[in-house]
């Protein structure tokens, strides 16, 4: 697309590191609101839910990078590591809020992880993100080699799907919002597969 070149030229001058700082600000904002009453009378759930949602947004943003490049030519690949690490950071804090502020009782934490399917699935999603976060650095890419590194990072697809399913499962009844997120995730994943079908032009 015509705007892709100027956008890409401009982005060449924009480093990735400020994204880490900007991306972390909402966490501070969410906690600040929770402490000062901005999240209503149940700040624990308010913080927990907002961080879960932010985590899902970052994960989905990460999935959008490749389709965006294919459809518009705008290349954000340089920022994808930051996006992925931010997703991990948000889900980590989401998990910590659940442990420390919500459930509190250690024996119940284990019971919940093992017995509550929506927690089990969220936890599985989180655990899959750990090796991805640990290998999100140049040294690991070199060490693993690009092929192995890339196949390892396909775990993202599983993690984000589990995260979206976790959201669908935790609400009471069939609510639209989580189902829409799950559909978006599925569509983004299908879009990637379409490329590998024969007869389609490669990007």
């Amino acid at each position: 697309m015509i705007f892709a070149r100027p956008v890409n030229d401009f982005l060449r001058h924009v480093p990735a590191w400020p994204l880490y700082i900007l991306g972390a600000l909402p966490v501070i904002w969410v906690f600040w609101q929770g402490v000062t009453g901005g999240l209503g009378v149940d700040p624990v759930k308010g913080i927990e839910h907002r961080l879960g949602l932010w985590g899902l947004w970052w994960l989905i943003a990460g999935l959008c990078v490749t389709p965006l490049a294919r459809v518009t030519g705008v290349r954000l690949i340089r920022y994808r590591r930051a996006i992925g690490l931010l997703a991990f950071f948000y889900i980590l804090v989401h998990l910590l809020v659940w442990l420390v502020l919500d459930v509190q009782i250690p024996s119940q934490i284990w019971a919940d992880i093992l017995k509550r399917p929506y927690i089990t699935i969220g936890m599985a999603g989180f655990l899959l993100m750990v090796p991805l976060a640990v290998t999100s650095n140049n040294w690991s890419v070199r060490k693993l080699g690009p092929v192995r590194w890339r196949s390892l990072h396909r775990l993202t697809y599983v993690a984000v799907t589990l995260g979206a399913i976790h959201f669908v499962m935790l609400v009471k009844g069939w609510q639209t919002e989580p189902v829409v997120y799950l559909l978006v995730v599925v569509m983004l994943l299908v879009f990637r597969q379409v490329r590998s079908l024969p007869g389609l032009r490669r990007a």
Partner: peptide, 22 residues
Amino acid sequence: VSHPRWSQASERVIGGGLFAKR
């Protein structure tokens, strides 16, 4: 009798702020 998706053994007390004990 726990709800299939969460325990009913304890409850969060609303209005107690960020560090309210279950």
